[in-house]
Amino acid sequence: MDSEQSGHSEKNLPTQTDAELFLALKGGQTIALGVLYDRHAGLVYGLAYKTLGNPQEAEDLTQDIFLTLARGGSYDPRRGSLRTFLAILTRSRAIDRVRSRSTKLAFLSRWKLGASEETTANSPLEQAFQGERSEEVKAALAQLSESQQQILKMAYYDGFSQSEIAKQLEVPLGTVKARARRGLLKLRETLTDYVG
């Protein structure tokens, strides 16, 4: 009888409210996530795409949002609708990604600017300074692990998204994100005197 009741409740999942589905998901009914995804993935993807402007990044963020929800998230049905919660969470995470991307691009453009200045330096003093700076950059890159160097090269020189890098290297997306972040943080620490 107990299995009939659980089977019956699973059949009724598509007709349940978002709050009921969320509680079912928290109670271990993973099928509820699929119903919530079907209901709200369009909203999440649309908001992500509008902010990020990249379909692959929007897909990645959509997946991240629903994984967050599956892990329990911070949604409280008493405080508002799930749709509003997902919209706010998506917008916040998308803006974080844009800011992160902007920070990385600014860092790299300053770094590349330093490299181009190296080739146009005129005086012997400038050439000596730029040569020393180039050595600092090489030394900073050498301090990164091989995997961090590879991921940063693929991202910033080859133009691959983190999802594409994960597929090419056959590693989880989370691993790529973590290695890229650690690599950039280490580079920033090492090159603080030259960047900014």
Rank of each mutant, 00 (worst) to 15 (best):
S3G: 03
S3Y: 13
S6L: 06
S6Y: 02
S6R: 11
H8Q: 03
E10P: 01
K11R: 13
T17L: 06
E20I: 02
A24P: 03
L25C: 10
L25I: 12
L33S: 06
L33I: 07
L33K: 09
L36R: 09
Y37H: 13
D38C: 12
R39Q: 08
R39I: 04
H40C: 03
H40I: 05
L43W: 04
L43N: 04
L43S: 03
A48Y: 04
K50I: 01
G53S: 08
Q56E: 05
E57F: 00
D60Y: 07
T62N: 07
Q63T: 15
D64Q: 15
I65H: 09
I65M: 10
F66L: 05
L67F: 06
L67N: 10
L69P: 09
A70L: 15
R71F: 11
R71N: 14
G72V: 07
P77N: 01
T84E: 15
T84A: 15
T84M: 13
I88W: 09
L89H: 11
L89F: 11
T90Y: 05
D96N: 14
R97M: 15
R97L: 13
S100N: 11
S102W: 04
T103S: 07
K104A: 13
A106R: 10
F107D: 12
L108W: 15
R110W: 07
A115C: 04
S116Q: 11
T120Q: 02
S123P: 02
P124I: 00
A128D: 02
G131D: 04
R133G: 06
S134Y: 00
E135H: 09
E135W: 04
E136Q: 13
V137H: 08
A140H: 08
L141D: 04
A142N: 03
S147R: 15
Q148V: 01
Q149P: 01
Q149K: 14
Q150C: 00
A155K: 14
I165N: 07
A166C: 05
V171I: 15
V171M: 08
V171G: 02
K177I: 10
A178L: 15
R181Q: 15
R182K: 15
L184P: 03
R188W: 08
T190C: 07
T192E: 12
D193A: 14
V195Y: 12
V195L: 15
G196T: 08
G196Q: 06
